[in-house]
Amino acid sequence: MNLTLRIWRQQNASADGEMRTYQVSGISPDMSFLEMLDTLNETLIERDEEPVAFDHDCREGICGACGMVINGQAHGPERTTTCQLHMRHFADGDTIDIEPWRAAAFPVVRDLVVDRSAFDRVIGAGGYITAPTGAAPEAHATPVPKPAADAAFTHAECIGCGACVAACPNGSAMLFTSAKVNHLNVLPQGAPERESRVLGMVEQMDAEGFGGCTLTGECATACPKGIPMPSIAAMNREYVRAAAKR
């Protein structure tokens, strides 16, 4: 496959960026999107040009490190992570636009790399349980009803990649935050901090400069892990309940 790529190039956080056009050839339809970018970078290095910077780690769709907006869609046309997107979803001769996540809370570090530490601070504001560490406790010491376990698992699938923020026209982190809040709030282990968790995480989410939810549904459409829209409604309910108790 031969492709034309228009890629956002930006030297550093303070520099101005621009879309630059590159040609790649010899792309196999079985390559992942990141392997296609590796191929481009090899040719750039051979020509003594700066390779395109992008985040990646596990390359098997579970770490949440990779992520770029491909033709206006977070992680591209398939509902998966960028590393699990394969070139067979594109046609020979296509022009592909590649941009970084765009949100005030995710400043561009370089090219396609953005700083997602705002997510870490949201987690730090309550996305954990306070429990003594040590040897793993006996699995059945705390009974968990099956529906609660299933709900927790649905939310626990969030890998924090930031696609929801990138897809949202308001740069909102509601889907991410709701997944993290609900994951722990539906479990007995999360119950003691149920109120302080949702209040703290929402407060931090707002403080980071993420926008609010207008229920466009773009986040859940983009989410590679299928975190559902009702997750946001569930967090709204948790939040109002906690605010009333405060």
Partner: peptide, 18 residues
């Protein structure tokens, strides 16, 4: 105002949303 400020840079590749 908050929502608009949270997405200061538009995507170059626009597509219809919502």
């Amino acid at each position: 105002r908050r929502d608009i400020a949270a997405r200061p840079v538009k995507y170059q590749h626009q597509r219809r949303q919502a």
